[in-house]
Structure formats: structure tokens, C-alpha cells
Simulated assay, not measured.
Amino acid sequence: MKKIIVAVDGSELSDKALDRAIFEATRHGAEVLCVNVVEGLTFLAYKREEIPDAWERLMREPNKLLAEAAQKAEAAGVRLRTLAEAGRPAETIAKLARQEKADEIIVGSRGKNALDNMLLGSVSGRLVQIAPCTIVVVR
């Protein structure tokens, strides 16, 4: 195994997914790509001229989560890159997995937004359907 993608959103289960990714990377000498995907539809609430400021505000939390993940990986001696994207989470993560030729994607079984999970289906469930590689769903 050479490359692992892990999705983080600040939920308890995404923290467990990150821990699992670091463990697997240590075990296999793999690189980790840690991703946070901001729902692309969020921008519909803003006027065009407000989007740059809105983007900065929206990215504060993801950037903080990704910085914390990088520190955790560094402490474990794991190579980790971070990436914040906008879009539909499952589709964005699957696309990244194809581009990166990832061997595995690790995600929590439920994200931060339980309402979205109930109404739209979970990101992990969708990834199981569309991902180009092995999916590990952490509970």
C-alpha cells in the first residue's frame, strides 16, 4: 500500500478515521492525503462579490482541522499532505482517489451533519458505491 486518503470533518468518527490512516501508513510506509470537502452548494447563499470573503470564512474550520491532522501525523512520523476542496464530498473524494491512484480511502461511518446523512445518504455509503479503491469505514 502506497497511498491512503482519509476524509476529516471534525466529527469523532473522522478523528478515528485519521487515527486509522496514521496507523495503516505507519504499518505500510504509505503516504496519507487528508481531505476536507466543503459542500459546494454553500455558495448559493452568497452574492458573487461576497464569494472571496465567504470562501475565507468557510475555510477557517477546514484549515484548522487539516493543520491538526498534519501535526498528529508528523508526531507519528507519517508523511501527510492536506487538501481542502469544495464540492460533493463522496464524488470529490472518489475523484481524488482516481487522480492520486490511492490504494485505500478511510472515512467515518457518520459525519458531522447527521441530518444530511439521514436525508441524502452518508458519504461513506456513497463512496462504497463509486470509489475506485478499497474503502475502510470506521465506527
Rank of each mutant, 00 (worst) to 15 (best):
M1F: 11
K2A: 05
K2H: 12
K3H: 06
K3T: 09
I4E: 00
V6Y: 00
V8R: 02
L13D: 06
L13R: 04
L13W: 03
S14F: 00
D15W: 10
K16E: 04
A17W: 00
A17S: 07
I22G: 02
F23A: 11
F23T: 11
E24Y: 07
E24A: 13
T26D: 07
A30M: 10
V32H: 00
L33K: 05
C34K: 01
V37T: 02
V38L: 14
V38Y: 05
T42P: 06
T42Q: 14
T42F: 11
L44R: 13
L44W: 08
A45R: 13
Y46P: 04
Y46N: 11
K47T: 14
E49W: 09
E50Y: 10
E50V: 06
E50T: 12
P52N: 09
W55L: 14
W55V: 13
E56R: 14
E56I: 15
L58R: 03
M59D: 09
P62H: 09
N63A: 15
N63F: 00
K64H: 15
L65C: 08
L66N: 00
A67M: 10
E68G: 08
A70M: 14
K72W: 09
A75C: 09
A76Y: 01
V78F: 06
R79T: 14
R79I: 14
R79M: 15
T82K: 12
L83K: 02
A86R: 02
G87E: 04
P89M: 05
A90M: 06
A94Q: 09
L96G: 13
A97V: 03
R98H: 11
D103A: 14
E104K: 13
I105S: 03
I106Y: 10
V107D: 02
G108H: 00
S109Q: 11
S109Y: 01
G111M: 04
G111A: 03
G111R: 02
K112L: 10
K112F: 09
A114G: 06
A114E: 14
L115S: 09
D116K: 15
D116A: 15
D116P: 11
D116Y: 15
N117P: 02
L119H: 08
G121K: 10
G121T: 06
G121S: 10
S122Y: 05
S122T: 15
S122N: 10
S124L: 07
S124C: 02
G125C: 13
L127Y: 05
V128P: 04
Q129S: 13
T134W: 10
I135S: 06
V137I: 14
V138Q: 00
V138L: 05
R139I: 05
